[in-house]
Design a protein around this nucleic acid. Structure first.
Lengths: 200, 200
DNA sequence: CTGATAGGTTAACAGTGTTAACTAATGCAA
DNA sequence: TTGCATTAGTTAACACTGTTAACCTATCAG
């Protein structure tokens, strides 16, 4: 029937990712996924412990993509402030360019979060650690003033998430231009952490 | 059986609000709500069109509470910068002190959002309009520098939501102190919008 | 006394996640 | 070549879900 014989496990992930973004979390069911893969629902359990584990696999995938994307954009920058800006910029950019992956991370998570082992997220936190380190160095160079780089980094993460999710969820005021909103939000978030002297 | 004969509709709302916060959205079912109210599931449909409408009623309730809370804190302030800070402070405070209501607004919404008529949210946007107005006046007084008050207000909303939700969802890094995170986040958000001169 | 209405009920449908038990095919060892 | 174990799937069932249609029953107005 199939030509290249793509493994069922991968098929399930692809179908789920696609259905999740197209039809939303609520209408995602094991039976529907199975039907699209020309298989019975129970077959999914051969590859995933349950529905949550299937979703968690998708989440980890996306978190890894997000981390890598940010690293690719930020690591080339040698100047700390440039890198700081690049991290922020690329976080938002990822959300805008890969909404299906971003949504999997944050929207699905809030639902299947309860059963999700927190430690698992630590592993794919490279982008966060990079931000912490960048802030630390910037503070040493007196380019930034923050009480605690760890806190500052997490605060930025949270603020950016708020900005991105408001856009992706279509909750933006209809009078507001999306691009303008993003651009100005990024600017203000950055400005909230920089010394006046370093603002370009 | 009951003493004061509280109306079933109100009972359903109370039970739902409570269950929603205690056990999460996923395990909230019409039958469970009904059982707690000593009634059959179908009775709920006498007062609410369906599960979504029941949730939407809860959402509107909470949005109204949030708006009123912010107004109560901010309107007494006559100085625009004080009012600006009060709005931001009280938004976060509401989230921290009434997590069950805050979560209803933002967590439940993303799930039953699809069927939620957008216009309905306009009606309870008083707090947002207040923020816009406060920013406008602050800009006129040269206390703030923003390109567009409408955009700035929405950006602040989004940033604050990110901050609050990260805490409520228990996603905060375990090494980070909650109060410190909130306090510093508020400071940075404010700092992102104020002229250097006006920072206390 | 009749009839409508308010405020419920029961039974059922179609769909959900998940489990236990089964089957069919493949590959390997004797 | 026979026999066994493993792999990859199946079917049937359980206990749940939201929702609908049809029914009941107490209350109250005319």
């Amino acid at each position: 029937m199939s030509e290249v014989e793509v493994p069922l496990r991968d098929q399930i992930l692809d179908i789920s990712r696609h259905m999740l973004f197209k039809e939303g979390y609520r209408s995602l069911s094991m039976r529907k996924i199975a039907k699209k893969a020309n298989v019975t629902a129970t077959s999914i359990y051969l590859y995933f412990e349950n529905k949550d584990h299937l979703l968690h696999t998708l989440i980890e995938e996306s978190v890894e993509d997000l981390s890598r994307f940010i690293e690719d954009q930020a690591l080339p920058k040698t100047d700390n402030i440039d890198r700081f800006k690049a991290i922020i910029q690329s976080y938002v950019e990822f959300g805008m360019h890969h909404p299906e992956k971003y949504e999997i991370i944050y929207r699905v998570r809030s639902d299947s979060m309860a059963r999700y082992p927190k430690e698992k997220f630590r592993k794919a936190r490279r982008a966060y650690e990079l931000l912490v380190q960048t802030i630390e160095e910037s503070v040493e160079q007196r380019l930034m003033e923050v009480d605690d780089p760890l806190v500052a980094a997490y605060s930025i993460w949270a603020q950016l998430h708020g900005v991105v999710s408001v856009v992706l969820n279509g909750r933006l005021d209809s009078r507001i231009n999306k691009e303008q909103f993003i651009e100005e939000s990024i600017e203000h978030v950055i400005q909230g952490f920089l010394e006046r002297a370093s603002v370009s």
